[in-house]
Design a protein around this nucleic acid. Structure first.
Lengths: 205, 205
DNA sequence: ATACAATATGACCGCGCGGTCACATGACCG
DNA sequence: CGGTCATGTGACCGCGCGGTCATATTGTAT
């Protein structure tokens, strides 16, 4: 966590620093993200940076936390409706809102990638809160299998992994190949995607 | 390409250097892979390295080429049978043999990841031979659609991307979660995987 | 005006990097 | 033997890094 000093800063300056850091972390792997560039971009002295944060990791962790809050704001409506619909409807909503978040806050979304791609950083940060995306989906998948929405001959771990992975890949595919706005095309892509998953996972009719 | 000097070396020494470099590139992103560590591990002088190779990229490119040769030896049988079976059979074999290659030569397999994750390196190396995995699958997918093995309402680009991406992800999943040997479990995972793809992609019955 | 704490600063440290270069070594030749 | 040439060597260069610290500046209470 940032030091007291940082939170004493006027909010505007806090944002300026976060903005500069976000830009840096979004465009460089953690180990290459340069504190020098961040302070240069934010227009503060190197020394000040270390008045605000323990170290580079501290700042990254803070941004990651903010990213989590942003993402949760997007996913919350889908999760609240989880009880009503079937598994694929939930998945559809999660993908859609997750995609919307990634499209509207691509730099925040990039932080997750940066975390995963750096093994030491991952071990350092993620070990604190051990919950992974796969654990997140697990109960939903088991319920879906019990309900007959998913073939029961599939390994739940494999399904969980598929669903998780494809979510990440969907982000990448959409951002790279299709568009950069939240629009009808996005909904259509997600629907094709979910249809593919549904056919692949549901019991034979 | 390495310089003349390198190929004049006794084969044993060439292998020693390649071995050291492979270890380094497999365990570090390209920009972090250290020539210093490579020469230390190989027991040669820094200067010698630059007698053999133009630079770090030159060596990486060379290893990548060797990796390609290795991979082709694994995939060749599947491709020779391509004319006989349907698309999913081909895919099954390609995944299986590809997985076998990744399991038996994990460090060679890792090079591909290293290439993809470094945008500048990718631009530098891949632009030379522009063929991507997606281009590779494209004709097979179009044939499969024409034959009715794949639903024709799907965007071929999306299918191609799915098939390609999942191949890479399958490698990752298998190496991390399941096992590290070529065995019955591997075949079973691939079969589940293909079954999933088949159901997801084929026309409704 | 004075004192004192909080904050701001950038020169500086040690490090490892990719890459270079002047020189050492030794095999082969006339 | 001397001469030549391919090969081997590691000290060295300039750089940017993450992080530190002595010092300067500012804010505030007296």
């Amino acid at each position: 966590m940032p030091k007291e000093t940082f939170f004493n800063l006027p909010e505007e300056k806090q944002n300026l620093i976060c903005e500069a850091a976000l830009e840096e972390f979004a465009t460089h792997p953690f180990r290459h993200a340069s504190v020098n560039r961040i302070v240069r971009r934010a227009g503060i002295a190197k020394g000040s940076f270390y008045q605000y944060f323990e170290d580079k990791t501290d700042l990254f962790r803070y941004l990651l936390q903010k990213a989590g809050e942003v993402k949760m704001r997007y996913l919350a409506p889908a999760l609240q409706n989880a009880a009503h619909g079937d598994f694929f409807t939930l998945l559809h909503d999660l993908y859609l809102y997750g995609l919307q978040m990634a499209v509207e806050h691509p730099r925040y979304a990039a932080l997750g990638k940066r975390l995963i791609e750096d093994r030491t950083l991952y071990a350092q940060i993620w070990s604190e809160s051990a919950a992974t995306a796969q654990d997140f989906f697990r109960p939903f998948i088991e319920k879906a299998m019990a309900r007959g929405e998913i073939r029961s001959d599939l390994d739940p771990a494999l399904v969980s992994w598929l669903v998780t992975t494809l979510s990440g890949q969907l982000n990448e595919y959409y951002l790279e190949h299709v568009a950069s706005q939240y629009d009808a095309r996005m909904m259509k892509t997600v629907e094709q995607f979910i249809a593919f998953l549904r056919h692949g996972l549901q019991p034979h009719s």
